[in-house]
Design a protein around this nucleic acid. Sequence first.
DNA 1: CATTATTCCTACTGCACTGGTAGTATATTA
DNA 2: TAATATACTACCAGTGCAGTAGGAATAATG
Lengths: 143, 143
Amino acid sequence: MKLSTRTRYAMRAVLELAENFGKGPLQTRVIAKNQDISVKYLEQIMAALKSAGLIRSQRGAKGGYILANPPEKIKLSDVFDVFEGPVVTVECVANDKYCNRSGNCVARQIWAEIQRVVRNVLQATTLKDVIEKAKDNKSDYQI
Amino acid sequence: MKLSTRTRYAMRAVLELAENFGKGPLQTRVIAKNQDISVKYLEQIMAALKSAGLIRSQRGAKGGYILANPPEKIKLSDVFDVFEGPVVTVECVANDKYCNRSGNCVARQIWAEIQRVVRNVLQATTLKDVIEKAKDNKSDYQI
DNA sequence: CATTATTCCTACTGCACTGGTAGTATATTA
DNA sequence: TAATATACTACCAGTGCAGTAGGAATAATG
């Protein structure tokens, strides 16, 4: 139950785009430097975020990436799901056909409950919520 | 963020031991059959649960495993932690020395919040809670 | 038009972990 | 001594993670 670096980097990159929202495209190179991530690795992550529809790209000089929607319209779950997928715990929680005893399975209920509370947090928070909080605390977006 | 089969199997095995608590040792072979798990694989899982102190073994004929403590004394987090570890999301949440910006990091606060709600569920529930619920619902312990 | 800056695309790699299988040793009971 | 358990160790194939690398396509600029 650990997060991949992909997800962590993606979250930080998207938070940085959110902070920069409305100020034109931001380059992978810049984000990579600020977040101390390999440029080439981040490129792949950005590509995935783009094909998920979370961000838009502008090619060529002075290009870069921008959020596809304003920060208040993007939930943390949107970012999370790109690499971690919608299933947080076990397959059978999302798909009750996965196991024929799903209907009255207690173990499944444990994992379903955990999945529920996790998604609660992710869906209740937007990028804007996070950056507002950051401004209050003078925090940054590491990890 | 998926659970390993180890954790899922361990949870089911321990729940079965909890149901059987006070009735003498239960054999890997029996649990494996009931839960439809490979005997040899389950053996390794039981060994890990034993060295974590959750269960006790009796070797030889008529041997098997029993819970080291009564079901109301064992929390789901005890079982969970054997294979998933106490860290649910990222290292820096448990160890703030892991990253030098931990102190005021917003991304970290996201993962910390998720970790918190997950551990809340796992620590608030005992094996007894689960099997009581199972009796009410006539559920079983699959998945 | 050439240069430069940027995304885009694809391939490759080393490593750790997962999900097992297998064989044998050791202890206990009958 | 025979049967039944756990205990211990080794092994293996597949998958995903966390990158590295190189070059092609595209767009702005001088």
